[in-house]
Nucleic acid binder design. Structure first.
Length: 176
DNA sequence: ACCCCGATCGTA
DNA sequence: ACGATCGGGGTT
């Protein structure tokens, strides 16, 4: 049971996105320990990826994407849901992995199989934005063994507005 | 100051 | 297929 360290998150975003499958998110909050095994991810990185929040310029919201690997990037979407990302690669290069689904011990997969749903379950909000997941005692990722399940690679979800990078296969899913 | 719209989700 | 809901970011 080892916590994922800086070197892991400094790798290329596509590697991190794929390798995060099977790893365990831990969030201690209100005297509870909330956990989930990552089953779906998406990679967003660089100045060419027009689905990447930070591909044009740095703004107050997306500035976390320019951090070095291992920081939480959590933002509000559609006025009602949060999305949880983990930054990757080196400082000044905008890049992160969106966590799209987790599997839990206690509740049905239907309740945690979406980026907004898993944030609700793990109680992740703006409060948990910009946290170093490699040093924080209450929010970190455990290096649980990678499952044998087959990894499916597909285009990313919900980015039909993108022009150049709508169809790149940067989504990774564990075949549950 | 104003306006548009989104890395979603539940319901129909 | 569609509406909820609101902050961010671009534009005036």
């Amino acid at each position: 049971m080892k916590i994922l360290n800086r070197d892991f998150f400094l790798q290329k975003t596509l590697i991190v996105a794929k390798e995060l499958l099977g790893k365990t998110i831990v969030h201690h909050i209100n005297n509870k320990k909330l956990t989930g095994i990552i089953t779906e991810t998406e990679a967003y990185f660089g100045f060419d990826d027009d689905a990447c929040h930070a591909h044009k310029k740095m703004t107050p919201r997306n500035k976390i994407m320019f951090e070095k690997g291992g920081f939480s990037y959590i933002y509000l979407i559609y006025g009602m849901y949060y999305c949880f990302n983990i930054t990757t690669e080196n400082k000044h290069f905008p890049s992160a992995v969106l966590i799209r689904a987790i599997k839990t011990n206690d509740i049905d997969y239907k309740k945690t199989n979406g980026p907004g749903k898993l944030c609700k379950y793990l109680q992740l909000t703006k409060q948990q934005n910009n946290i170093d997941l490699t040093t924080n005692p209450d929010f970190y990722i455990i290096n649980t063994p990678s499952p044998k399940a087959k990894i499916i690679q597909t285009p990313r979800i919900g980015i039909n507005y993108a022009k150049t990078h709508k169809d790149v296969p940067w989504r990774f899913v564990l075949n549950i």
